[in-house]
C-alpha cells in the first residue's frame, strides 16, 4: 500500500562508517560462545542472588520457609523406605538409606533436566529486555538446584546418625562426583533449554521422559537385589544403558559407603565430554537466536 521508494535511506547525512573488514555471520563462532559462558560466570553476584531469591520466594510467608524442602524430602524417604522395605522384604536400615540418597541425587538430576526445558522460555521477559549472556539463566538454575541439594543433605546427615554407614576416606569421591553432576546439569539445561525454546513441544516430552527415567533408574528398587535373582538378572542389566543410572551411582555409592565401580566414572566422564561438545556446537550456531525465539 505504501510507496516502496522510502525503503532506501535517502539521507545524505548518514555517517556510514567504513565497513569493518571480514564480514562473517555475526556471533556464530566459538569466541562468542565462550564469551557468553565467561561473562555469565563473572556476573555471579546476580545469579547467586537470584538463585537464593527463587528459593526464598517459593516458601515466602510460610512459617518454616525453605526447611520445607528438607521436611518433604524426609517424609518421602521415610514413607517410601518403609513401604518398599515391606514390599521387597528388605531390612529397613538397608532400604531407607538407599532410597533417601537415591532420591536426593535424583531430585538434583531431574530438576536440571525438567527445569532446563523451560529455562529460557520462563525468562523471556529478562532475555528480551536486558542484554545478558544466556548462560546466567542456566547458572541460576543449577545454583538453585544445588541449594535444594544442600537442604536435602540435612536429611542425609540425620540419616547417618540413625543408620550409620561404613564411610571411608575414599568416599570423599562424593565431592568430585557432585562436581560432575553440576557440570552435566549445566550442559543439559543449556542444550534442552535452547532446543525447547525453538520447539515448544519439547518441554512436555521432557517431563514425560524424566518421569519414565525415574522408574527405569534404581532409586526405590535396588539393582543388586535384582542381579541376585537369576530370573531377572539378565533383563536387569539393561539398566547399564540408562545414563542416569551411572550419575546416580557415582554419588550414591560413596555417600552410602558402598564399593565404587570405575566404569560408572568412565561413562559419566565420557558423557560430560560428549555432552559439552554437542552443547558448544549448538550454542555456537543458535545462541544468538534464543532472544528471537523466546
Amino acid at each position: 500500500m505504501s510507496s516502496s521508494s522510502t525503503t532506501t535511506p535517502d539521507s545524505a547525512a548518514a555517517p556510514t562508517a567504513a565497513a569493518p573488514p571480514g564480514l562473517r555471520p555475526p556471533g556464530r563462532d566459538f569466541g562468542s560462545t565462550f564469551r557468553d559462558l565467561r561473562t555469565g560466570w563473572n556476573q555471579r553476584e546476580l545469579w547467586l542472588h537470584l538463585g537464593w531469591q527463587d528459593i526464598r520466594q517459593r516458601y515466602r510467608r510460610s512459617v518454616l520457609g525453605p526447611i520445607w524442602i528438607t521436611i518433604s524430602m524426609a517424609v518421602t524417604a521415610i514413607a517410601l523406605g518403609i513401604l518398599y522395605a515391606g514390599l521387597f522384604g528388605n531390612p529397613l536400615e538397608e532400604q531407607l538409606p538407599y532410597i533417601l540418597v537415591g532420591f536426593i541425587v535424583w531430585t538434583f538430576i531431574s530438576g536440571c533436566i525438567s527445569e532446563g526445558s523451560e529455562v529460557f522460555v520462563a525468562n523471556s521477559g529478562l532475555i528480551t529486555h536486558l542484554p545478558a549472556p544466556i548462560s546466567i539463566h542456566v547458572y541460576r538454575l543449577v545454583w538453585r538446584q544445588s541449594l535444594f541439594f544442600a537442604h536435602n543433605l540435612i536429611v542425609y546427615a540425620v540419616m547417618l546418625v540413625v543408620f550409620p554407614q561404613p564411610l571411608l576416606w575414599t568416599d570423599l569421591s562424593a565431592f568430585p562426583a557432585f562436581g560432575l553432576l553440576v557440570l552435566n546439569g549445566a550442559w543439559v539445561a543449556l542444550l534442552i533449554g535452547i532446543v525447547s525454546t525453538r520447539f515448544r513441544d519439547l518441554p512436555p516430552v521432557t517431563q514425560s521422559v524424566v518421569q519414565l527415567l525415574f522408574f527405569l533408574t534404581p532409586i526405590v528398587w535396588i539393582y543388586e537385589d535384582l542381579l541376585e535373582n537369576p530370573n531377572v538378572a539378565q533383563r536387569a542389566r539393561i539398566v547399564e544403558f540408562n545414563p542416569i543410572f551411572h550419575f546416580v551411582e557415582i554419588l550414591r555409592r560413596p555417600m552410602l559407603g558402598m564399593d565404587q565401580h570405575l566404569h560408572n566414572w568412565v561413562i559419566v566422564a565420557a558423557i560430560t565430554v560428549v555432552g559439552w561438545t554437542l552443547t558448544l556446537l549448538v550454542m555456537r550456531r543458535y545462541r544468538g537466536r534464543v532472544a528471537y525465539w523466546v
Binding site: Q43, E45, L46, H49, L50, Q53, Q57, R60, G125, L126, H129, L130, A132
Partner: peptide
C-alpha cells in the same frame, strides 16, 4: 521497560539491589 526484573514479592529495597545488578 521500567518494570522488568522487578519482583512483586520482595521488598522495595531488595528490588533496588536486584534491578541494579541487572
Amino acid at each position: 521497560d521500567l518494570g522488568v526484573g522487578m519482583d512483586p514479592e520482595i521488598s522495595g529495597l531488595e528490588n533496588i539491589l536486584v534491578r541494579g545488578l541487572f
